[in-house]
Design a protein around this nucleic acid. Sequence first.
DNA 1: CCTCCATTGAGTACGTTGTACGCGATCTCC
DNA 2: GGAGATCGCGTACAACGTACTCAATGGAGG
Lengths: 258, 258
Amino acid sequence: MTDAEYVNIWMRPERPAYGPKPAYSRAQITEAAIRIADAEGLESATMRRIAAEIGAGAMSLYRYVPSRDNLIELMADQVMGEIDVTGMPSGDWRADLTRYAEGQRAMWLRHPWIATVQRSLPSFGPSQLLLVERLMGVLDAFVPIDENLGLVALLNGHVEGTVREEISSAEAFRRSGLSEPEWMARSYPYVDRLVKSGEYPIFAKIVMEARQPHLSREEQFRNGLERVLDCIATALPSTAGSPMPAHREGQDGPGTGS
Amino acid sequence: MTDAEYVNIWMRPERPAYGPKPAYSRAQITEAAIRIADAEGLESATMRRIAAEIGAGAMSLYRYVPSRDNLIELMADQVMGEIDVTGMPSGDWRADLTRYAEGQRAMWLRHPWIATVQRSLPSFGPSQLLLVERLMGVLDAFVPIDENLGLVALLNGHVEGTVREEISSAEAFRRSGLSEPEWMARSYPYVDRLVKSGEYPIFAKIVMEARQPHLSREEQFRNGLERVLDCIATALPSTAGSPMPAHREGQDGPGTGS
DNA sequence: CCTCCATTGAGTACGTTGTACGCGATCTCC
DNA sequence: GGAGATCGCGTACAACGTACTCAATGGAGG
């Protein structure tokens, strides 16, 4: 009835007209859920567990949140608000996008369960909306809105793709209960068999030769990010300010000399 | 005990030495699971449901697969095998990568549940391995392996990011049980309030002005893909063949006529 | 002031999930 | 021809999300 009226969790008012004072709040529940999900994974953030965390009865949560799915939407929007995009656009689009990208990555690493959340697309929560405003505001002066959408998608695609991989390998370890070295030791026979079989030369090349996988995650991320920013630069008019990538100081783009 | 020995589903042999003839097979179970997940979502592909689909008892599946998570890994690898990468590298890297990207997208759209699967990173199944061989083989002759990894990550990031958005909006409709027009009608008051509030000028601009969201999904994907391929082109040596389409001097590569 | 009743926190209960365990039947190896 | 591993499968259990129900609560209308 009234439940189905709201297509969005944000369309549903939190506080009713009158009645007894609520003992808890959406914010409190959301924060508790995030705390649990951060520490033990999203699947551990069950309704009972969250309720216990704040000292409530299991069913009390449903006075504040219509369903677990909606609570997860609240969690997702909440953590999006952690990304610092104040003062954007600052005038230096490259610095702005870098700060955004690193903030996004840091947030994902703090809250790895984000990777498993279906952002049911247009569920625009307040934090997500603000993020869009600031992020797309960076390029808004330089390109038409459609171009902006494309460039932002490119940037987000890279950030999310990279971090997702980072997270999922960490998650795989956590789930299996093995440490990374132990896991690698266990995997060695399989990988070794694949390499020695000769059927997968490029896989073997990755295992044997690639240095990228041995760099720190930060460096891997940085390298990819610079590439994406260079790509964005080519789509902007020269009035956009940041110089062309070719003669940037400390340029480390595609094809280092060594 | 012997269960924990295997870190990988692919390290565990399917057929044991002796005993009665198995009535089913991993492949059969995997296919049934995929069929159900395609039609009703991954959460409907429960062990009981899958067993019923092939006419088996619920617990029989555990003779073939150690856990549901491992079954999902099998499913994921299976559908990766659907992407047609035969004949790569063909010599035209741009055509190869386009075919790969569109194949990847088509596969994701056929099996939307893929978006929710944590690819526990190095669980290299046979199809995934073959895919890596063919895909990375496309650029292997032109760039060092580390550069290749970066470029492929860029491409995959775009494909996955775009399709993920495509899927999650479709999923949101499916879950809510509403049709797209009905959903939009329900959302209208919320969106309208946001736009009229004046607090979100760029969001408003997207809603009011952007044409990209009204293009077909194929066109949106194509546009973004071209951008990524252009970006990759700048990282390749000129011997790679495919010329830059638009704003570069058209040095027609030897032999490539497109 | 009192009364009304929507809303509160919370207990109980139901249906569904993944899967541990154990059974008799079946097949390969020695 | 045993011996014993492996088969399909029924039963059982713990944990999940959440529908339903209840007495207690406290602002609104008189």
